[in-house]
Design a protein around this nucleic acid. Structure first.
Length: 372
DNA sequence: GTTTTGTTTCCTGGTT
DNA sequence: AAACCAGGAAACAAAA
């Protein structure tokens, strides 16, 4: 599922993208491609190497601008399209707009080569979404979507791995706990992997690995080096616990990479990797795709932008997966959330646990902003 | 090469 | 007691 993004294609073609008057991370204005410019596609707020290909789970009629951009990017790569001929003004349309275009219009906009691909792909997605909406009980579909969604995130809700009680026992034993699909059906708290399991796991060394003990996961992350890295990380953590009497304030310096290279082997960043979706955008995207957010978060007051974490640790784990950080917790995520108050991306909601509110510097969640 | 940005990590102390 | 909230301090990586 490696998707080289539009930005890297553009970069390969010695082009960078330029957006006039960028004030926000969201792509709300037309872009042009200019030589020798400095603002990379990362400013579009579009994720590439961290792409979840969410658009695959959504009807094209519901695609956001980000989804469309991601979809185009995937085709640019697969068709080896020469990105320099592509006007990005057309990449900022949303799904409904896209769906209104006929074959000739798409070919006209994207050119014969890419346009043909895009048109057929679009028809494909439209057909699939129609079939989906007709077949099977809604619940099963939701579960399937969630499954695919989590799959795409490589988030192992379906097979959690515990490097058990490393701090309590001399040997690390593995407990592989497979949660069946039935457990995924909505939505009572204790039917899902509970937050306490997440939080205890993050303290005792559970890592969000899709691969160990999960033979069906075919990604490169199943390699032994990665597993060893995680085991040694568990040991590092338990050693740290032992030696911890009183830590100095602040974040300790990271171990040098030669000492834990294998951890970094898998978090190697693309030189041209765009900034990932910001945390608040990640949260927003979970909220605005109800078919994907089963039981994780909910709107308390959609109009006001008030929302609540239902599975705080699960969301934190997903965020960690997205950022390739296996030790993310709600504690840390919430600290980052609190920094948003100052920037007015979020507003405080006093006295309500796990409840936040989008602020005036957030965007993309309001009904009127969203294409219908 | 330096500064800025957006987290991430860890902490103390308070509240629910 | 556990989970959560608030915010300081420092580290870190990527972008500007």
């Amino acid at each position: 599922m490696s998707s080289q993004c539009l930005s890297s294609v553009l970069t390969n073609a010695n082009f960078t993208m330029y957006q006039t008057g960028v004030t926000d991370v969201l792509p709300q204005q037309p872009y042009t491609i200019a030589r020798s410019n400095t603002l990379p596609i990362s400013n579009l707020g579009y994720t590439s190497n961290m792409s979840c290909q969410w658009y695959r789970q959504i009807s094209p009629h519901c695609w956001t601008e980000d989804n469309v951009l991601e979809w185009i990017s995937d085709h640019v790569e697969s068709t080896k399209f020469d990105a320099k001929t592509l006007s990005l003004a057309y990449c900022t349309m949303d799904g409904p707009t896209l769906c209104q275009m006929n074959h000739d219009q798409i070919v006209e906009v994207f050119g014969q080569q890419l346009g043909q691909h895009l048109y057929h792909s679009l028809q494909d997605f439209k057909t699939k979404s129609e079939l989906h909406s007709l077949s099977g009980p809604e619940l099963n579909e939701t579960c399937q979507l969630l499954d695919n969604f989590l799959d795409n995130l490589k988030f192992p809700l379906l097979s959690t791995i515990r490097i058990g009680q490393a701090e309590d026992s001399a040997t690390s034993d593995y407990e592989i706990n497979s949660v069946s699909m039935e457990a995924m059906t909505p939505l009572r708290d204790n039917e899902y992997l509970s937050d306490s399991e997440y939080s205890s796991s993050s303290n005792s060394g559970m890592f969000g690995l899709p691969s160990i003990g999960s033979p069906e996961s075919g990604s490169g992350e199943s390699d032994p080096e990665f597993s060893i890295a995680l085991i040694s990380k568990a040991h590092v953590k338990s050693d740290k616990e032992e030696s911890r009497l009183k830590r100095p304030r602040g974040r300790p310096p990271k171990l040098s990479r030669e000492h834990n290279t294998s951890i970094y082997v898998h978090s190697k960043k693309n030189k041209h990797a765009p900034r990932g979706t910001h945390l608040w955008e990640f949260i927003r995207d979970i909220l605005i795709h109800p078919e994907m957010n089963q039981g994780l978060m909910k709107w308390e007051d959609r109009r006001e932008g008030v929302f609540k974490f239902l599975k705080s640790e699960a969301v934190a784990q997903m965020w960690g997966q997205k950022k390739k950080n296996t030790s993310m917790t709600y504690e840390k995520l919430s600290r980052a959330m609190r920094y948003y108050y100052k920037r007015e991306i979020l507003e405080r909601v006093d006295g309500r646990r796990l409840v936040y509110k989008f602020g005036k510097n957030s965007s993309g969640w309001k009904m009127e902003e969203m294409a219908i």
